[in-house]
Design a protein around this nucleic acid. Sequence first.
DNA 1: CGCCTTTGACCTGCGC
DNA 2: GCGCAGGTCAAAGGCG
Length: 531
Amino acid sequence: MGREKERDHRMEIDLSLKVDIADHEEQQAVEKEVDRAGVQDKGKGYHDDEQAQAPNDHRQDQPGIHVRDAEEAAEATTGEVDDDASVSDQVSLQENMRTKELSLLRMEMNRVKEENKVLRNVVEQTMKDYYDLQMKFATVQQNNQKKDPQIFLSLNGNHGIDSQEPKTILNTPDITKERPPSPSHKDGLRESELGLSLRLHTGAEEQRVEDKDQENKEEVKSFTTVQNKLQRSTDLTGIASHVASPVNRKARVSVRARCEAATMNDGCQWRKYGQKIAKGNPSCPRAYYRCTVAPGCPVRKQVQRCLEDMSILITTYEGTHNHPLPVGATAMASTASAAASFMLLDSISLPNYGLHGSHMIHSSDLNPSNIRTMNPINIDPSKGIVLDLTSNSYDHHNHQYPAPQFPMASSSYSAARPGFPAWMHGKPSFHTGNISLTNNNNLFPIPRSAIENKSLAENVTAIASDPKFRVAVAAAITSLINKESPNTITHPHVGTPFGPRDGDQSGSSGSSNWVLESLSGNGKPLGHSPS
DNA sequence: CGCCTTTGACCTGCGC
DNA sequence: GCGCAGGTCAAAGGCG
């Protein structure tokens, strides 16, 4: 009897590998046969019900058992039958086996059904999460744009969410009017923003499951509140103000470039308005520049040499351009926009919506399965994520830099190589170093050995292959497209710190503090000084 | 002459 | 509240 049970188990396992869900006709035929054979098996103690009650215990996937099972069945058959076994015994044994096979088939069917149900739930949950992300992204965009009613209206039109709710659009100017210009009215501002976020959310609710909306509202509320804490105050004069609003100033993207020149050419025109000797780096004063492409552009940038490596120029951009940018700056803006979105999306995906002034990114985070697992604890607004496009490839032994990397180029050069940021354009034989994400100069490397000597296109492809980065880029592109929509109300360009257009608003999220790090060419004059 | 850089003073936020 | 550091302003001077 013990031998028979063992055999049953093996048969069960074997049969589980043969399940074919799709064949309903066969299933029906099987069920008929099972019913018929069940009567015959009663006398031998093989009850289908018993089999059906404990299918999971033996349903381990064990490939190869099929062969053993067949052999054992044959062995059993020959053993039992032997020379003087009757043909009828063989037939009954075969029928018995067949019966079990069929019953197991049915059990496996049920199991697969349950699995399908579970998978369906997972997919539904994923879709809900996706919608949550979209809504939060839109909320952040609104938070960044609402300082200018026109921008807000434009956003509504673009996203087609609130456009279904004329009341929301009409109410927007009132909200901004009610907003006290003084930074001291933080609470009022926060309430207004909260209201906006809720309305936005309501617009999206129509496409979503009702029972999840309350929960999502709470999430957006908390997220918006956190955002507002960062933004603190909003300049109602918006873009027209010469002084960058706190909102804009919170949007920071830095570029680390190996550069001999005073500044790197990013395609914009800058005017130096101040210089300060930074604490802890007296030998490298920090220079302050203001964008002069258009009067009143709030974008500022800080330029400072890296303390550890004086050849590295750290350029930190703050604010959003209110004007179209030259080609080179446009390309760079796209990259920065994608980077900002990259982080923003991730930050939104976090359960507690922590502020992400900086972000630890671990190598495991590139795994799509870890898309929601980035550590929100490592928050330091003074530091930032570094999108490192090179390795720290300075050869300390030879005191030199390896192959050409990213010579800074003029706008005209970048125009000759469309599709690449100006600061990535260089000599015809340009190479790249590593491409990696770093936090506060702590490289999160795509191993240099894996990338070295590869072309820029390959490295870009490597980055682009990351699902999260792709999502971010998609968001940025979508945002850009939306802004270019004919329905868009013309308004000053507001976007990423590099935003040629108002592209991706996430760059001004207030929580973004990116450092886009690249290493420029070795020793080649890098662009122009602010002129 | 206009635009730019330089540079000291002033403002502001933050930590103690 | 005070001091420090970062950030900004604006006058002065330089340069094309």
